[in-house]
């Protein structure tokens, strides 16, 4: 039974050396730069963006999401959305340069979908990729897992999904 979802970025418990409950799906690409832990599902020139399981865990129960409007174009590393949880306030960056084609309007009323289902109903935005050359710089799942192992061991993450 998972009843808590807001304080499991545990910096005081025992050290975990392995990924602990954090799902890192094979079929996605990942953008792990600085504080960014974002997934991207590529589909030709289009792509969907969302927060990874460790990222939603770090944020805790998400209270508000502000997504930039469809039509907004930004370079890689600029914000596509802003996430607030009370313990985390931060941007979600474009993993590659793009133009927003669709935003997940469900998140306005139910931001916790990002916690419940980060790779599914909790997607944040769909974009048209405007610089395909940057796609090669994204991490594949096996590369991302290596990096996540480091992050998870360092910060002692235990991934937990909010109870629906």
């Amino acid at each position: 039974m998972r009843t808590e979802c807001s304080r499991e970025w545990d910096t005081e418990g025992e050290l975990m050396a392995i990924i602990n409950g954090c799902e890192i799906p094979d079929e996605l690409h990942y953008y792990l730069e600085g504080s960014q832990m974002t997934w991207i599902r590529l589909d030709g020139e289009n792509a969907t963006i969302g927060l990874t399981d460790p990222a939603q865990t770090r944020a805790g129960r998400i209270l508000h999401v502000r997504i930039k409007a469809a039509g907004t174009s930004r370079e890689k590393g600029k914000p596509v959305a802003t996430i607030e949880s009370g313990k985390w306030a931060g941007p979600v960056h474009f993993p590659v340069a793009g133009t927003i084609t669709r935003v997940n309007e469900q998140l306005e009323l139910r931001p916790v979908l990002i916690n419940d289902d980060p790779y599914g109903e909790g997607w944040i935005a769909q974009i048209k990729v405007t610089n395909q050359a940057e796609v090669a710089g994204l991490l594949k799942a096996d590369q991302a897992r290596t990096r996540f192992n480091e992050i998870i061991a360092r910060d002692n993450v235990k991934c937990i999904r909010c109870q629906k």
Partner: peptide, 11 residues
């Protein structure tokens, strides 16, 4: 500090 962090995240 939280509010300032959020402002910065909003560009």
């Amino acid at each position: 500090i939280y509010t300032a962090a959020l402002s910065a995240a909003m560009e």
